[in-house]
Each structure stands twice: as C-alpha cells, then as structure tokens.
Design a protein around this nucleic acid. Structure first.
Lengths: 348, 348
DNA sequence: CAGGGCTTTGAAAGCGCTTGCAGAAACTAG
DNA sequence: CTAGTTTCTGCAAGCGCTTTCAAAGCCCTG
C-alpha cells in the first residue's frame, strides 16, 4: 500500500507531473478554493462535496505542495533549530526529541549548527530567517540577550540552557544549579570534604550555574570553598584530562571530583587512571548529563541525569505554542542523580 | 555589521515587510526580470545595470525568498537526509559532514530519522518528496534495493553503508569488510588464536561485511572459524554486554574480542570487568568506528577508525553532483586501525 | 411565498520569483 | 547610412496554493 504509493509518486515526479490541487478540484467537480478549504478546515463545506473531494484526493494520491503553501499562506510550517554541534552526544538526544515533537504538530525542523561561534550562529539565524521559518529553537545560544529579545520581535524563540526574558521568548531548561547541588550534596553525604570541581567553559551560562550549585552545596555542608579545587575544563574529554593533571601537578588533594559534564568526567577518569589512582577506591567521580554511554563505561559513572529528551520535546511544544499564539507551559523534570559505581563513601 | 543586519531583518519581518525583488528592481530602475537574471547569472546584463542593482540590493539588504524561488523555479535547493537515529554518536559526525558539504554548495539539508524501521523510513521519504527535495541521502537504509532503484527515478539518491546499483544512485561507504579484516589481522598478529566476534544486527549489510572480514582474516591466518566464538550483538552497549555474558556462560574460551562497533565494545568491556576479567591483561578488545569517546575510556580502545566525516562530506558532494548532472566521484579513505591500550600481545 | 439572515461556494487576485518571447538597443558589415 | 546580427531587457504568464469578496443557495419566519 504505502509501497505502491511511493512508487506512484516517484513515477509522477519523474514525469514532472505532480498532482495539483487544481486537478483534485476538477476531478471532484468543485473549485480549487473549496478543496483548499477542506484541506485546511478553513470553512464549512457541504458534506457531499467533502466526500467527493476526499475521494478525488485518494484516487489521485494528492499531496499538497508545501512550497506553494508557504508562499501563498506566508507560513512555512517549519521551525529552525540552532544547535551547537549536531555531532555532540549530548545534543543528539534533544534533537531527536525536537524532531518528534515538531513532526507531531505538523512542523518540520530545519537543523543548523552554530559550532559555538557567535558569528556562525548569527549566519544560521539569517539562513533560517531567509527560509522563512516560523519559529526558532536555540540550543545554548551564545548571542547576547538583547539580540535575542530583538530577534524575537520577528519570530518566536525558544532557548534552552539559559534564561532570557522577553516577549516572545520562552526558556526550557533543566535546573543546572540544582543538578550540581544534588551531585555535590551526595558527595558530601558520602563523607567527602575535599571535592574538586572541573568547570565548563566560563562563557557558558549553564557552566556557571553548575559552579553555583557546587558552591551552594559546599556552603550548606559548611565546607569552605577553595578555588584551588576548581580546575578549568571545556566540556570535552581532553579538558577533563588536562584539569586532573593540573590539579595533581599542583599537588592539590581531593577525594572526589565533580565534573561539569560526562565527557569531562571521562577525561578525568582516564587521567586518574594514568596517574595510578583508582576510581572509586582512591577518588570518587561524578559527572553531569548522563550520556547513554555513561552507564556502560568502567566503572559505570555516577552522574546527574537530565531528561534531555524532555528538553527536546518541551522545546518543540513551546515553540509550537508560541507560533500558534498560545502560552507555552512546557517544563522539564528536575535533574536526578543516577548513582552508579564511580563513587564510594569516604572516611578519613 | 552582521549584527545590525539581523536587527534590520528582524524589524522588517516584524512589520511584515520583507524586501522583495520587485522593490530592488524599482530602486535600481530596472525590471524584476533583470534583477532575477543578475541574481542567477542566467543572462548577460549591461555593467551599469549590474552595478545599480547590486547597489540597490546592498542598500535594501535584500535577501531572495527561497520559498518563492522554489515555487517559481521548481527547484528547492534542499536535499533530504534520512538517518536512522539522529542521536546516535556514530551518525552525528556524518551529519555534521553532510551539513558542511551541502551548505558549501548552497543546498540545505532536511534531516529526518527512520528509527531503523522500514515503515518510518518510507514515510520520511514521502515527507521529503512532498517538501520537494532535489536529492536524498539515505544513511544505512533498510528499504529493499529495488525500491531504491525505483525511487531514484524520481530523485537522485546517495546511499551509505551498503551497495546499490542503479541509474541515479551513488554509494559512498567505507569498506567494512576491510576494516574488520585489518582489526582481526592485528589481533592474529599479536598472537591471538581464539578471537571472539560480537556481531551487529544480522539484517544490517555492514554488520555482515564485518563478519566477512573477520572470517577472511581467520582464513588468511589459517585459524578455523568456529561459530561458538560468534555472539549476536545489536550495535548497542547492552548487546555487547549480553554477548560477553553469553559467551562466558557457555564457557567459550577466548583471549580477544572483536566487537562489531565501539558501543558494543563498551558493553563488552563492562561485562568482562564485572566477570573479573581485565582488559587487556586477560582479554584484548577491539572495536569498530572509533567514536570520539573511545580514545578516552579506560583503557583507551583499540578500534577501527573510519573517516566518518568523509562519509558525510562525500555523500553531500555526491548528491550535489548527481543533482547537477555531473558524475560523482566521492570516495572515502580506507579504514585504519587506531591502536590504543585495550589490546596486548598474547602468548600461550 | 416574499423577505431576511446565514451558510456555502466560486472567481480572481495575489505570494515573490523565474523564464519564454519579442521588441529595443547596440554593433557590424556592406 | 541601411540592412542584418547579436545583445540586452521588459512584458507577461505562470509555479500551486490561500484568501477576500461577493454572488448563490438555503432555511426560516410572518
């Protein structure tokens, strides 16, 4: 069934003769306007005609041309998605969620990557605008707040990974501060006092939030914050590795490491291993993100689980709400801690 | 500069007044056709007018509307990309390559996921066709050969991960058989004789190729193939884990494991660890794909490196060639072995 | 059964751009 | 300087669909 349709369509396209709305109209003995109205539900149409048109559509295997639709209706039924790295294990899951949520509502996603560069991101947005998208989802954008607010004047925006207040801007995000807090609390609860923190890139809003959460947990645990325990990472494995090496070279003592994301944690674990330190016997490690792989590395990583798919679906839902002038209410669950085997209690 | 343009555009869109080609024509004192011709280089135009139009374009910040362009010109400047799982770490890198290659040639990608399901894949293709893409890239498609050949009558195709012969079909792929051969050869060269193989899903062409390569290497090394050494995996971590457990439970003896992909290898390593076997001291492990993470797990994984970005860029290049009626010649480099620390020589 | 008020429907005018066609302009040659 | 070419360039007709506007049809009521 589906199969033959595909073939028919293929043949049609090959011969350059796609079925048009007009052909349907003729076949059904009504005017194009009527067909259009039935298709879009923009007006009541006599039942008998509805049936005739539906029959014609089925017979001709008509599929409306979205391009013509966009042009005529001024709406493209597509939304732009600016991600930073389509190949990052982290974004992948969100993107899948976005795709799912958008398709369900009849929109198609247009993915483009900003590569963490402000300039690239700007041209992505331009590109999307020129494609007449009806909304844009920005994953952890780097553009300044004010620019986003401004952009929102022309097209609704959903941003993830940071907070921006504006008229047609909606933020869907997990609470990174809370996640970091939970992770650090856990470590403290396990008896750790000297907890190193490997940060993310300092120009990343959520990296800062994670640091805040770490500090808040320390404060709550009456442990003084010591900047020597904080090492700079870059959200990548290499950064985590370098950070541990730096810490160890500086002879900083710690019994646990909280890495700002899982990739950082992987790098950290490798560095510890190379220096002869065992996880979790000598050092406990906690990550953030809970990448699919994290449950399978050796040892399985204790990490902050964030509901990444929810971010994606939530973002999709919110942008659709915004486009259709409803008030979005998408929320994502609070992060939780997935306790696995890279941590253990500490007793001095 | 860029900044202000974006703002201007935003404002324009907000007030519903995008700059049109006609406005440019008026500003430059020529007809719309002339502007169009200059834009597309479809005809010679007097120098003075070219300059006038260019000035007008710059002044008005005109950006042609791709939707109108598609409708009028019958070409959408977009190509569909059917991937199986946008969130798989493996596809990510290819997708990035595709995006890069396509954008460079002026096309935009439309990503959709088939989720490894034939039905989903079919609707993806339908969706893309309805969006009037000019070409489709299918990443490891599941559709039958004949259907693809047929589809190619309506739109040029590039398929990865398998071979299909047809008129407007081009395959870009790494040689999985060779990759598997290289990996297994290496293990044999290190003195291993009992090499287990964890396969991929049997309905996956490249999974079969990997098995072939494994067998070919054994044959070349005069080692009899033993089916007990082959365990079924699913290209995911869990499958690798289960496979090792099955092997161990069946008391199959082996000193090395060749996993059909890296994710499988991760799962295998975890299972070995849980059973108290050390990698590489007790068992050597080799993977396939060389995911970015593989260099950072403990121990860093020896694995077949495939130039995934080349697959993406090659696919993009090929589809553009096909669309523009040139003969594609994109090739991807042969896989190589990234030797790291999950393997060691074996002496009985 | 005429008149009023709704509902249903078609004609036609676009949406912004491309392109075939034919007239205008610019050259060349005689 | 004119006829014959070769270049330019504008007009107008779409691409396939949406949407306004007004005419047509329908159902009541008095």
């Amino acid at each position: 069934m589906r199969r033959s349709e595909l073939e028919r369509r293929a043949a049609a396209a090959a011969s350059g003769s796609a079925v048009t709305l007009e052909m349907v109209a003729r076949e059904a003995g009504v005017s194009p306007s009527t067909v259009s109205r039935i298709l879009n539900g923009t007006a009541r149409v006599r039942d008998s005609k509805v049936r005739a048109v539906e029959a014609a559509i089925a017979k001709l295997q008509f599929l409306p041309n979205p391009v013509a639709r966009s042009l005529a209706g001024g709406k493209s039924m597509s939304v732009g998605v600016v991600t930073q790295a389509i190949d990052s294990p982290f974004y992948g899951v969100s993107l899948a969620g976005i795709e799912k949520g958008l398709l369900r509502a009849g929109y198609s996603p247009l993915f483009v990557s900003g590569h963490w560069r402000e300039g690239d991101e700007r041209s992505c947005v331009d590109h999307l605008l020129s494609r007449r998208v009806e909304g844009i989802i920005l994953m952890t954008s780097r553009l300044p707040d004010e620019e986003l607010v401004n952009l929102a004047r022309s097209v609704p925006l959903v941003v993830t990974g940071r907070r921006v207040d504006g008229d047609r801007v909606y933020c869907v995000d997990v609470d990174s501060t809370l996640g970091a807090r939970v992770a650090t609390d856990y470590l403290i609860g396990q008896g750790h006092r000297r907890i190193a923190f490997i940060s993310g890139p300092p120009d990343h809003p959520d990296a800062l939030q994670r640091l805040d959460g770490y500090r808040a947990a320390l404060a709550a645990g009456r442990i003084p914050f010591r900047s020597k325990l904080v090492a700079a990472g870059d959200y990548l494995e290499a950064g985590g590795q370098a950070a541990i090496n730096a810490l160890l070279d500086a002879r900083v003592e710690f019994t646990a490491v909280f890495a700002a994301n899982d990739q950082t944690a992987y790098g950290a674990m490798l560095a510890l291993h190379r220096r002869g330190l065992k996880v979790p016997q000598d050092v406990s490690v906690v990550g953030f993100d809970d990448l699919p792989t994290s449950a399978f590395i050796v040892p399985p990583l204790t990490t902050v689980h964030r509901y990444t798919d929810e971010i994606g679906e939530g973002a999709a839902e919110a942008i659709v709400d915004l486009i259709e002038r409803r008030t979005p209410h998408a929320r994502v669950s609070a992060p939780t801690l997935a306790i696995r085997e890279s941590t253990r209690p500490w007793r001095d």
